[in-house]
Design a protein around this nucleic acid. Sequence first.
DNA 1: TATTGTTATACTCTATAACTATA
DNA 2: TATAGTTATAGAGTATAACAATA
Lengths: 158, 158
Amino acid sequence: MSTATPVPDAAPALDADFGWALRALTTAFRERAGDAVSTVPGGPRGFLVLTALREGPPESQLALARTLGFDKTVLTYLLDGLEERALVSRTPDPADRRARRIVVTPRGRRLLTTVQRRMTAAECDLLSALEPAEAQHFRAMLARIAATVRSDGICDGS
Amino acid sequence: MSTATPVPDAAPALDADFGWALRALTTAFRERAGDAVSTVPGGPRGFLVLTALREGPPESQLALARTLGFDKTVLTYLLDGLEERALVSRTPDPADRRARRIVVTPRGRRLLTTVQRRMTAAECDLLSALEPAEAQHFRAMLARIAATVRSDGICDGS
DNA sequence: TATTGTTATACTCTATAACTATA
DNA sequence: TATAGTTATAGAGTATAACAATA
């Protein structure tokens, strides 16, 4: 009998099921984050658009869509909503008149700061089952996994 | 200057954003799990129904729905699909003729075993960014969080 | 001919309300 | 009256196809 089992049991109970736990986490996150981002047009996805734009203007809407992992058609109406409330500005790129330059407005930055604070609080609440150091570890592992699966989707070599 | 920051930065980049990482993980999981559960009527949710039933027949459909965190209306057509392929049986409870006794058939158990094996493989692939021991730690933390947020939703005392 | 962005459409998942049959 | 289950419907989120403008 081995006491440590690196490979998970082939027939776990519901509570031990990865998919079930992931589903429970995302559901709870949606609920709590939903309140936090209720003031952002487009909700959680609008928030991610602002977050991505904060790092600098993308080459085009398409480049932004790829960064976020969103469909380009989704981005169109997400940006419609954000532009309507003057949180981003959308101007034709003089160099390539098919593309649009998207930039966050000062107002957009201010909203993002406020909402990010609320999001952080919601996340801490969500992870309150873990000790602070554990929660940081969980976040770090999650980020590593996300980076891997994303790059897999984009450029899985072999 | 502190080298350890238990509280996350208030303005993280996209790659460090919890919601973005969670979204990337669930998207990748859906893709991979989708293949694994493609033979189960109702897909990922049908699989969870079978998993929950494997632990024993529930009091009623409603009790099963609460265990899974599904809406009762969803469970109706999920069970329709599973019953149609003889993976579960649905018989009126003699004691309370409003309620139905749901049990997994031998065929349902066999399918579950096969699919669970595929699901485990898909999960291991998904978590391949982590060392096996780390992956187990991640699973354990995820299960703890899920248990907490679930019980919060059902019976938050104070 | 290929690409950016838009519109229209459909499909899945989820949530709500209204109904039936039992208790 | 309250509960178990069903049906119908509407709303998000997502993906696809077709289109206009530009390269």
